[in-house]
């Protein structure tokens, strides 16, 4: 049997907001350890991997591994109906019928909303996403997630509006990370220097560079990843010319959300 409870819907609402516009379907794998979710976008440019350990839930019971594919657009719609302080229960019954039930209960007025989602295919087992040692990456940038979101917004407002193919070039050079994009009649560069101030120790921008690196990405994807800021105060961007870039948000000791993105090969 699978039975999970979260006393505040916020965490799950934020997770869905952070993935549902880019990924249409995800593989949800529940095991004794927790929930692992993976999804790839239809153009196979981006991949998302989420881990929420059992400790992230107020109640977690999963006595048999269960894997289910779920439609994220439908789930996001349902979760938009949930208030932040609603109690969420996730249940799948003993007979493993291909349905999972999400219940939202308002602690104030006792109103209960029940949503059943049919499985939409599944991988059957969690996908094996390779983990690469830190040494494989040429540069690593850690910054406040709100700052990263602000940068993405600025770049998007300057880049050709309506052009889905706006490219952002991320370059790391010594103690600077540059974000560059081209608009219709000009270019825009945002330079972030390494900072670590005494008065704001929790909001540093840290740059670790082994080699200079400069990679092009789809701005649309990066902009969408920046929604992970609701889940964590910090984002870590790992860059390599030989591997997909990783944008990682750690979720308060209980897991993470990692977005992987292929760089664009410029003609």
């Amino acid at each position: 049997i699978l039975e999970l409870r979260l006393v505040q819907a916020t965490l799950f609402k934020n997770v869905l907001e952070a993935i549902s516009d880019l990924f249409s379907k995800a593989n949800f794998d529940f095991s004794g350890t927790g929930l692992e979710l993976q999804a790839m976008d239809t153009s196979h440019v981006a991949l998302v991997a989420l881990l929420l350990r059992a400790e992230a839930f107020n109640h977690y019971l999963c006595d048999r591994d269960l894997s289910m594919g779920l439609n994220l657009a439908d789930m996001a719609k349902a979760f938009r109906c949930a208030n932040n302080d609603d109690i969420i229960t996730i249940k799948a019954e003993e007979d493993w019928s291909d349905t999972v039930t999400f219940t939202f209960e308002s602690p104030e007025d006792g109103e209960i909303s029940i949503f059943d989602f049919d499985f939409v295919g599944t991988n059957g087992v969690p996908l094996e996403i390779p983990e690469f040692p830190e040494s494989e990456y040429q540069a690593k940038v850690r910054m406040p997630s709100a700052k990263f979101m602000r940068i993405c917004k600025k770049l998007s407002s300057f880049g050709d509006s309506g052009d889905r193919d706006t490219v952002v070039i991320i370059s790391v050079d010594k103690e600077c990370v540059n974000f560059f994009t081209r608009g219709k009649t000009g270019t825009s560069t945002i330079v972030c220097r390494q900072t670590q101030t005494v008065d704001k120790p929790k909001e540093p921008t840290l740059i670790e560079m082994k080699e200079q690196v400069s990679l092009a990405f789809d701005l649309r994807y990066m902009n969408s990843f920046s929604k992970g800021s609701t889940l964590s105060d910090q984002v870590t961007i790992s860059l390599s010319s030989n591997l997909p870039a990783v944008f990682e948000y750690k979720i308060a000791e209980t897991g993470y959300i990692r977005y992987y993105m292929l760089p664009r090969i410029e003609e």
Partner: peptide
């Protein structure tokens, strides 16, 4: 599985 194949292809694309 097809998904695992897609994933392996993804990591070999760079």
């Amino acid at each position: 599985t097809p998904m695992q194949n897609d994933l392996e292809e993804f990591f070999s694309m760079v």
